[in-house]
């Protein structure tokens, strides 16, 4: 690594805690992204299930899994354990993950963009 980059890296890393703690103040002085763009606090929880229902319930890995999303996002995504994200159109409310994709898996992560009830982990039996 070149000396100048090493210095810059050291500066950046040294600044991480300060920058993290002072993010809101930094934003307040930023012309393009004012302070109200920042979250006031951390997300409330990881797994509200209010916007998601699954069928069958409880779900198993040897059956197709039908997921109904009740929120307002036009697209959501899911991740079967160890696999990449798959985007889903929600215009009809429900979508189905075929059992072939679930074989040997223990969970599915559901993600929507809302600030609330966005995430859910569905554990497969």
């Amino acid at each position: 690594m070149r000396p100048s980059l090493r210095s810059a890296t050291a500066l950046l890393l040294f600044a991480i805690p300060l920058l993290g703690a002072g993010a809101r103040g930094l934003a307040a002085t930023h012309a393009e992204l004012p302070a109200h763009a920042l979250p006031a606090q951390a997300l409330p929880a990881q797994a509200f299930d209010d916007d998601w229902t699954v069928d069958p319930d409880p779900p198993t890995a040897d059956q197709d899994l039908t997921i109904t999303y009740h929120g307002a996002d036009d697209q959501v995504s899911y991740e079967v354990e160890g696999e990449g994200s798959v985007d889903v159109d929600t215009s009809r409310g429900s979508f189905t993950i075929p059992k072939a994709k679930l074989a040997g898996k223990s969970y599915v992560k559901l993600k929507a963009s809302g600030g609330e009830a966005g995430f859910r982990i569905v554990r497969l039996r």
């Binding site: 992204l33 763009a37 160890g82 992560k109």
Partner: peptide, 29 residues
């Protein structure tokens, strides 16, 4: 460019092989 530097929230993993994830939600001006 790290013009804004936000702390983020951690969510625990779904299994012992899942190291978890993090997320931020924010309003755009």
């Amino acid at each position: 460019s790290p013009d804004l530097f936000l702390t983020s929230t951690f969510f625990s993993g779904a299994s012992t092989t899942d190291s978890g994830w993090t997320a931020n939600v924010f309003g755009l001006p």
